[in-house]
Amino acid sequence: MDIDTIKKIIQDFFQEGTVTIVGSGLSLAEGIPGMGELAKKLQMEIPGLLSATGDIKNWNNIENDLAKGVGLEEALHNTKPSSYVEECIRKVTAIYIGEADKGLLTDIVKTGKQLRFSEYLQLFNIRNEGMTVITTNYDRLLEYACETNEIMADTLFVGKYIARFKPDQSKYASCIGVQRTNGKGKKLQYSPRVTILKPHGCLSWHLINSIPYSLPDYSIEDSLIITPGLNKYREGYSVPFDIHRARANEEIDKAQRYIIIGYGFGDDHLETHLMQQLRAGKPALILTRQILINFV
Score class of each variant (00 low, 15 high):
D222C: 09
I211G: 09
T148G: 08
Q179P: 12
L104P: 11
R180F: 06
I252S: 10
K91G: 03
G281Q: 03
V158Q: 11
T148Y: 06
P240K: 02
N128V: 12
L292Y: 08
G34L: 04
G185L: 06
K186H: 13
I220M: 14
V92E: 03
L224R: 00
G130W: 07
G262N: 01
I252V: 02
G71L: 08
L188V: 10
V22H: 01
N182V: 14
F13Y: 15
Q43C: 08
G201H: 02
G98A: 03
S191G: 14
I9Q: 09
S83P: 06
E45V: 06
E37A: 15
M152R: 10
M152N: 04
Y161L: 14
I151F: 03
Y138V: 06
N149C: 08
R234H: 07
A284I: 06
W59I: 00
C88S: 09
G103A: 10
I176T: 14
A255V: 05
L105T: 09
L26S: 01
E99R: 13
T111A: 13
G266F: 04
Y213T: 03
K68P: 06
L188I: 13
K91M: 15
V133M: 07
P33L: 15
P212N: 03
A173M: 14
R164F: 09
V296D: 13
A52E: 13
I6C: 12
R116T: 11
L121F: 07
Q256T: 08
V109W: 08
I46V: 15
D222W: 03
A75K: 03
L26E: 07
L278A: 10
R247T: 09
S238E: 13
L28M: 09
G31Q: 12
P167E: 06
L66H: 04
K184V: 13
E16N: 12
N249D: 06
N137Q: 06
A52C: 08
D222T: 02
I46G: 00
E45D: 11
S174W: 04
